[in-house]
Amino acid sequence: MAAAALTHVPLREGLELIIQDFRPTGEMTLRFSREASALHFGYMLKGRVHTVIDQGRRRFFNSPNLAGRGGVLFLPHTISQGHYQAGDHVLGLSVDVSPRLFGQLAEDISPALPDQLRDLVKGARSSNGFVLPATITAPMNAVLRDILAIRRDSPCAGLFTEAKVLELLGLQMEQFIESHRHAGPARAMDRADRAGLRRVLEMLGANLHDQPSLLDMAREAGMSHGKLNICFKQAYGVTVFEWLRQARLDRARELLGAGCSIAEAALLAGFCDQSHLNRCFKRRFGLTPGQYLRARRG
């Protein structure tokens, strides 16, 4: 089914690195359950996976996970399924941290953290769990690449890996602290709000090439467009249209990797024209599509 699977790298007690690097030869679903209450830091570097997470009879999460995105999850007593497309090179990295170790690492900064993480540091663990979306910044991407480049047969591999993993966690906490500092008072979302946001995500994912209007999305979510903007940013860390732009860029990169021309990738991913894709692609990935293709060819 795949050229490789998951690599587990235990570090200190309560800290484990997991590397996901494979290319399914056919459509594939990975299923696993979480009974333990580890805090999960996950990052996608290549490919995409559609993730479904169920907690008992409750559908906790149902959304595509695209390259360039990450998140921190605390999901005890859940069953997760990842759906992968044939031929799609998937490269992801995640870190599992026990709540006890996280409390020790984050004790001094806990007052500045988002409520969910602050409560975890204090030992108040919600049985419902939570998901905090994140974006892979340039410094985080550099650390992720450093981790992947460490030679596993080196006698100091464990030491180097743990140092880089802790650096990654520090960068992620810094991102959350900055977002939390500049955010206004959080608006409490109920179950209907969260279900509406999931429907909007599915709507966006199915219409990358034909952008739905904000009014259509608000109707799908069952809320006003103003409320949709506030709730979407609160839940996913970006606005609706920032999410759509990032998803289109990820799709364009996938199409280029699959052999499409730049003009074809621009059209199929929903960009106005090739020059529009060029500008957005370079802003996001640091390379133009042409430079990206030349780098892939080596």
Rank of each mutant, 00 (worst) to 15 (best):
residue 197 L to S: 07
residue 214 L to D: 04
residue 212 P to C: 05
residue 49 V to Q: 03
residue 175 Q to H: 11
residue 230 I to Q: 13
residue 229 N to A: 13
residue 264 E to A: 12
residue 103 G to L: 09
residue 180 H to W: 15
residue 252 A to F: 08
residue 224 S to L: 12
residue 204 L to I: 15
residue 102 F to S: 00
residue 57 R to G: 14
residue 41 F to Y: 15
residue 37 S to N: 11
residue 285 F to P: 02
residue 53 I to W: 08
residue 161 T to V: 09
residue 77 H to W: 13
residue 26 G to L: 10
residue 144 L to E: 01
residue 194 R to H: 12
residue 241 F to E: 08
residue 145 R to N: 11
residue 250 D to G: 14
residue 269 A to V: 09
residue 187 R to G: 02
residue 106 A to S: 06
residue 210 D to P: 02
residue 54 D to H: 13
residue 289 P to L: 03
residue 261 S to E: 03
residue 71 G to L: 02
residue 164 K to A: 09
residue 273 D to Q: 11
residue 140 M to L: 06
residue 40 H to G: 00
residue 88 D to P: 06
residue 137 T to K: 04
residue 186 A to W: 07
residue 138 A to L: 15
residue 178 E to F: 06
residue 108 D to A: 15
residue 87 G to F: 09
residue 133 P to H: 15
residue 56 G to Y: 08
residue 121 V to C: 02
residue 75 L to R: 08
residue 202 E to F: 10
residue 74 F to C: 00
residue 223 M to R: 01
residue 107 E to D: 03
residue 17 L to E: 03
residue 18 I to M: 02
residue 298 G to Y: 02
residue 24 P to H: 06
residue 89 H to E: 02
residue 146 D to E: 12
residue 254 E to Y: 05
residue 67 A to G: 11
residue 266 A to N: 06
residue 134 A to W: 06
residue 91 L to I: 15
residue 43 Y to H: 12
residue 95 V to R: 05
residue 221 A to P: 02
residue 2 A to N: 10
residue 297 R to S: 07
residue 229 N to H: 13
residue 78 T to E: 01
residue 180 H to N: 12
residue 182 H to N: 07
residue 131 V to H: 10
residue 229 N to E: 11
residue 127 S to E: 13
